[in-house]
Each structure stands twice: as C-alpha cells, then as structure tokens.
Design a binder for these strands. Structure first.
Lengths: 237, 237
DNA sequence: TCAAAAGTGTTCCTTCTACACCCATGT
DNA sequence: ACATGGGTGTAGAAGGAACACTTTTGA
C-alpha cells in the first residue's frame, strides 16, 4: 500500500517522558544532553501495535536502563514540528535511586530539576507540568514512596517530600500525619547509622496504590472520594 | 513524498468530546444516537494544521450547533480500532442550556447522564472520567458557572451543584461557602418568580477563571497552591 | 391566611498550625 | 561529655458539619 503525502500529513503521535529520581543532589530528571547546556526530554514514538503506556514504559526502560517504579500520563500537547502537526503524549515516571551507578546509561544525564535547560517549548511545558503534578500528588497520595527504597526512615521520607516540594516541612506535624494516614507499617528493625539514636524503619502498608487516584483507567475506584468534596455527611443519605 | 505502508500503520489521532448541559432533566450529555438505546460520543479527527483544543472546540460547535462555554482536555487513550492502533484525546465540554431549543441539532441527542448507553469501551471510560473530573472540580474551582446563565440565584447554583454531584447539599453551608469564596457578585436586582419571596441575583465576580487550575497550559499560574498542600505557614520562610 | 421558596446563626467537633525539649547512640 | 540526628505533646485557630425557624411574596 502506498500513501501519497500532500503538503500536510496527519498528526504524528510522539511520547515524551519525564523520569524523576531522588539522589544526593535532590530531585533530578533524566534528559538527553545536547549542545552545551541544552537538553531534551526522553521521547519516542509508539510502535504500531503498542499501547501508549507500554510505549512510555519501554522508552524509559530503554534509555535509563532500568524499570520505572511509577508511570502516569500527564497531558497531550498538540504542536508543530518542522511544519508538521504532531501530538505529544507526556508521561511522568518515578524511579528509585539505584546503587548500580556503575551502569550509568549512555546518552542520559540526570540533572537537578532547577538546572535543566530545555530549548523546546513543549519540553519545558511538559517538565513544568510534571513537577506541578508530582508536587500536588504528594499531598493526597502515596506517590512519594516510589522514589524511596522499600525500607526507609521517617527522616528519609521527610527529606523526599522536602526535595520534591522545594521547602522544609515541620517534623512533628509531618510524622503525625504520615502515621495517622495508615499507609506506613513500622518494622521491628531499626537502622543504626551514625553516632546518634537509631531510626525506626518503615515500609508502605498497602499494595493498593492510591497514586493513580483521579487518573484513568483507575479513577473509578476512587470516584466517591472525588465527589465527596463539598458535601456533608448527612447529605449522602 | 511517498510512504510505503507495511501491515500496521502508525496510530491515528482521534478526538472525543463529552458536552454536558444542565436542563430540566438534570445533567445531560450530547451523544449521537445509533441503534436503539445505543449511542456514541462525539468524535472526529483534528485537521492537519489544527491544534487539539481547537479541533475539539470545532467538533463540539459543529455538532451541537453552538459554542461551548468551557473546554478541558481529560486524558488520552491508546486503543485499537478495526485492528489499527489509534489514540483518542478526550475532552470535557460544558455548554449553557440554550433557550433556542428550536434549533436542536440533527444527529444529536441530549441524554440524561444515567441513561447514556455506550457500546464502545473507550467511550464509556471517557464519559466516566469526564464525570469524575467534573465532580471533583466542583469542589475547588468555579467550573459550575459555565453551566449556568450569566445571572442566577443561589438556589439555582445549588441545584446545579446537586445535579452534577447527584446528591443534596446543605443550604446554609452551601451559601456561606459560596459567598465566602468571593467569586460571586451580588446584583442589585432581584428575581420575582412565584408566590414567594424574591431571590437575589448573582453573577460571577472575576474574569480570571480558576477552572483550568492544574491543567496545562495554564497550570503554572496556580502552581503555588498545588504545592502548598502538606505544608505549614512557617515552613515557607 | 396559606403555600412556597428565600434567607439567616450557632454549637460542636475535627483538623491544622506553631512551637522546644529529651533520647539514644558513637566517638 | 559532647555532638548528632531520632523522637515526642499541647494549646490555640480555623474550618467543616449539623441543624430549624422567620421572612417575603402571590394567590
């Protein structure tokens, strides 16, 4: 079969992903480095028989060399690339900091969020929105857990929140809320770390993951919560 | 330019829109009626030089015969149509109930949300998610205003909320919150309606519209709010 | 004078915020 | 004994929920 391309072709579908990682330097993003100080986000096209999510997952895995912990679709941008229409479906990915820093992936740099320089307008919008979404979801989901190792201390958890939000949070209030939320299991073990009191270790309590909350195709399970805003208990009779 | 098409072609971009309207029968949705009791959502393809939003706007306008009040991208679904990959970018649209019911558009039916029957899986997901999003946004944006005429009473506003949420809300609390929110201007005029006390008329106070809150490309303006979850005042020093 | 919708306050309770000191350990 | 990070409680403020009667009008 042959298609004659006229001046304008139908829009091409492109996938763009923003993998975040939490390391010593705080929150950083995987980019392809280019000209000095110019980077671009990970992108690719879905194969003809590939769902969007699996294409995004594959792109992240291929480029950074290991699996993401969490993947969420963000937004779809329509724009022109070289005079052709295209459509960019953007994704947020979270990966755990790997100790195997030996096998740093070629063509990939992890850059602190505030140092990322993106020449492309769409890339900048994608990154900006990814950060907004990540920060917002910290407040009402357990999304932060995908940035941490399976066992962690409350201080580590707090540092993760602070790194993402970009500002300090109150220790006592933070701990109270986290424990009250019920998503943490305290382990019997403690971690002896330096010349100070050892810290209790925690893990995430539930396998059911609230992070995707309010995003299809899983949104329905949580719909009640969403519609309970602006209602009172007696109203739901 | 010539492209040789192999067995599978690249994904096609499709746009799907869910226009909501608030009428006597409560919240209803514009669909194309088909086989008895089978409907489908409004859909179309973006022109080669058309942005996604304008394509969605055009599709809504063409089909229902008047402009939408509010348009918001929801989610992008990847799926197969007739064995070919395609990508559906879904949109939520809100329209004001028009008095010009004379010019009901051909090929369109407005069906109460709970009576919509969609044979397509993707269509069902789109509608479900549109409702979830609309309900959620009632709680923290002024999105409801796009379903109402420019001047309205507090009772009408409350009925709109109830129709969307699907349950009653407390009158006194509702009024207090609405007035406290500051998005309402009370007009000097009142509406005499039946054999009872006349109701004060209101309109929306601000031209700046919080409904798109947390959705690109406007999300940035509201980013501070988003990241203020889980923080205390003193933390932001 | 009655019916029908408009309008209006208070109490209780839960949640949020601010804030400072003692504890366990290693050197 | 001291330095380091781990761990804890409380009081005040603000916000959310429940709840019932009076007012104004037209018929």
């Amino acid at each position: 079969m042959v298609i004659v391309k006229t001046t304008a072709s139908p829009p091409l579908v492109r996938i763009s992903a923003v993998p975040f990682r939490l390391g010593r330097a705080g929150l950083s993003v995987a980019v392809h480095p280019g000209q000095p100080d110019e980077q671009r986000l990970l992108a690719g096209a879905p194969g003809p028989d590939e769902w969007l999510d699996s294409a995004a997952r594959r792109i992240v895995r291929e480029r950074i060399g290991w699996d993401e912990q969490y993947l969420e679709q963000l937004y779809t941008f329509g724009h022109a690339t070289d005079g052709n229409a295209s459509v960019t479906v953007s994704y947020l990915a979270l990966v755990r900091d790997q100790d195997r820093h030996d096998q740093e992936s070629p063509g990939i740099a992890w850059v602190a969020v505030h140092d990322v320089t993106l020449p492309s307008d769409v890339d900048r919008q994608v990154l900006e929105y990814a950060l907004i979404r990540l920060r917002a979801k910290l407040g009402y989901t357990n999304i932060a857990f995908h940035l941490l190792p399976p066992r962690f201390t409350l201080s580590e958890l707090q540092l993760a929140y602070q790194a993402v939000l970009g500002h300090p949070v109150d220790k006592r209030n933070f701990r109270r809320r986290m424990i009250a939320s019920g998503i943490l299991d305290q382990l019997d073990e403690k971690r002896r770390d330096g010349s100070h009191r050892p810290a209790a270790l925690y893990r995430f309590a539930s396998r059911d993951d609230h992070a995707a909350y309010l995003t299809p195709p899983w949104a329905a399970e949580h719909a009640e919560n969403a519609s309970e805003l602006l209602t009172s208990r007696s109203d739901r009779a």
